[in-house]
Design a binder for these strands. Structure first.
Lengths: 154, 154
DNA sequence: TATGAAATATTTCGTTC
DNA sequence: GAACGAAATATTTCATA
């Protein structure tokens, strides 16, 4: 069953503020509270809403350093690649990791406390791994935009 | 007032699941429900918890296409740069945008519905802007890791 | 100032229409 | 989708350390 306009309005609201009371949400999307609640529950059950989480200020917890790392791998066997991916997944500082088309093979987004933590991450991920051909790191000097909400409305 | 160990445990839990009841959270961090609730409120008031949001499955809402774009700008006046940043902020598909050290000046993360939407975004951001020297786009083929939770514990 | 326990208010859930 | 009571949960108040 596809998402209708009301579902999308619910998603738009909850992506901005999931602390809103069900009564207030219902009013904003034009439903009765009980109907609205059942819609929200269904969106969670079907996995459209994967979960609801607190968004923490990285600065406030001493992790305000963001870095983007592009990694080029030598195109050898898939097994070593899996090892590399497993190490990436294990690193707490790695927030996002994608396999991509183009010159880099993998792009990482790191959220760090200090440059010395960066050193440690880089060593654990890249040192002594012949699969890793080279990597480039770009440190964020300024954050122009940072959203968690996926656009859901036309 | 710095965050103590209990604050950090609260943050760790709420970053994974903000739907947890206060009673259950209190038990997990070893506090009484009322004390726990007040801690959570304080974390929100002081901005450590910026907000709580629903995490939506991008695939489920037809926006499963992720792209990373590196942009190089000619180093001219700051005013045009502000215009460019303003356009970036206006684009709903732009999830993250950083100004970075190194060869690219700006890195964008896009969350798209289709490649034709990509075309539109690129045109609006880059076309006829002499500030934009060049850009490279890397389309995500696979997502290895995607977290919203900033590491808060030692 | 921080905590915990009890009282109150609100939200959520099942049933019925 | 609406209306209701019952259960669960959150919030406030107040006493204590």
């Amino acid at each position: 069953m596809p998402l209708d306009r009301i579902d999308r309005r619910i998603l738009a609201h909850l992506q901005e503020d999931a602390d809103i009371t069900n009564a207030a949400l219902a009013e904003r999307v034009g439903l009765s509270p009980s109907t609205c609640l059942r819609r929200v529950q269904r969106l969670k059950e079907t996995g459209v809403i994967r979960r609801t989480v607190a968004v923490v200020d990285a600065e406030a917890v001493g992790r305000g350093l963001t870095a983007v790392v592009e990694v080029q791998l030598s195109h050898h066997g898939a097994p070593q690649r899996q090892d590399f991916i497993a190490r990436v997944r294990q690193e707490p500082a790695v927030m996002q990791a994608w396999g991509v088309t183009g010159e880099p093979d993998v792009i990482l987004v790191l959220q760090l406390a200090t440059m010395s933590e960066y050193q440690g991450v880089i060593e654990r991920l890249f040192a002594n791994d012949p699969l890793v051909e080279r990597f480039y790191t770009y440190v964020a000097v300024e954050t122009y935009k940072s959203r968690t909400a996926v656009p859901v409305e036309a």
